[in-house]
């Protein structure tokens, strides 16, 4: 039986490399569903990634796809978008890729408001290298490089991007698959830098070390701790303790970088013509 989303997949490259129970397939499917529901032009859509488990997703997706160096997906994508603003450029990254080694590119892309849709598959662990702590690993959690518990404090990625000037920031989870699809659709429709923190589960390298032994334990944890953005607004600091908001958290449209640069181009050409 043909999958309804088969035209977006390189079926010949399957099966994927992800472990049983991994959340990355759910998020990849949400992206593909969002693309399908929006009817994006598959010839004009480019998917760029860095290094890590999540960054293998583009290899299975039937678009122009670019699997770059660790942390640099957003910087490569910036070059693509600047060179050809007609393209829809989607970046798939992980929490280590986006927030540790690539943190600088994340905040600067947000500041520039360049038209990229960045989806962070956030499983708060380095899965590809078998379970070292990331900047998203919660304090006290265990990781192969945090055998006594994580001593550092984690980022809140949405707050980070917001603080860097991000004009569209959203969060959802692998548990909320339909909600996640809708949030990604909003991000893809947004004209500017759009960031989606997509919580994923890594049962193999995070769950097993942290008393969330099965994928369902981890998905249920997302269900039990996520709060809609509208409810979050009404909650007291005490009520918010241990919870996190999902939904569109920032939506403050601002002029997109390549459009602003397009105006510079027109002006420079006019001046060059006048001086010739």
């Amino acid at each position: 039986m043909a999958l309804p989303l088969e035209k977006y997949l390189r079926v010949g490259k399957l099966p994927h490399i992800w472990c049983p129970g991994c959340g990355h397939g759910i998020i990849t499917q949400a992206i593909i569903r969002a693309i399908d529901e929006l009817g994006l032009d598959t010839q004009k859509t480019v998917v760029v990634s860095g290094i890590g488990c999540s960054s293998r997703a583009p290899g299975y997706m039937n678009f122009d796809t670019l699997h770059t160096t660790h942390g640099r997906a957003i910087a490569f994508a910036t070059g693509i978008k600047m060179a050809n603003p007609e393209l829809k450029v989607i970046v798939i990254t992980g929490d280590g890729d986006a927030a540790a080694i690539g943190g600088n590119h994340l905040i600067h892309a947000a500041r520039r408001n360049i038209g990229l849709t960045v989806i962070c598959f956030n499983n708060n662990i380095y899965g590809m290298t078998s379970g070292q702590y990331s900047p998203l690993t919660p304090t006290g959690s265990y990781a192969s490089t945090a055998p006594y518990g994580m001593v550092e404090r984690p980022f809140d990625l949405c707050e980070l991007v917001k603080g860097a000037g991000g004009t569209f920031v959203a969060r959802s989870t692998a548990y909320h698959a339909r909600h996640l699809t809708n949030v990604i659709k909003d991000a893809l429709k947004y004209d500017g830098f759009a960031f989606v923190d997509a919580l994923s589960q890594c049962p193999t390298y995070f769950g097993r070390r942290n008393r969330l032994r099965t994928p369902m334990d981890m998905l249920n944890w997302m269900r039990d701790h996520a709060v809609s953005a509208s409810s979050w607004e009404k909650m007291s600091p005490e009520e918010r303790e241990g919870k996190f908001p999902i939904g569109v958290l920032v939506n403050q449209p601002s002029r997109e970088l390549t459009k602003v640069y397009g105006e510079i181009l027109a002006q420079a050409r006019k001046e060059a013509g006048a001086n010739a």
């Binding site: 770059t68 910087a75 060179a83 393209l87």
Partner: peptide, 18 residues
């Protein structure tokens, strides 16, 4: 760009865009 690494990355991206 924000750093030298990003500059080289952006150059690769732009070249792939043709």
């Amino acid at each position: 760009m924000e750093d030298e690494i990003a500059s080289m990355a952006a150059v690769c991206g732009a070249s792939l865009a043709g």
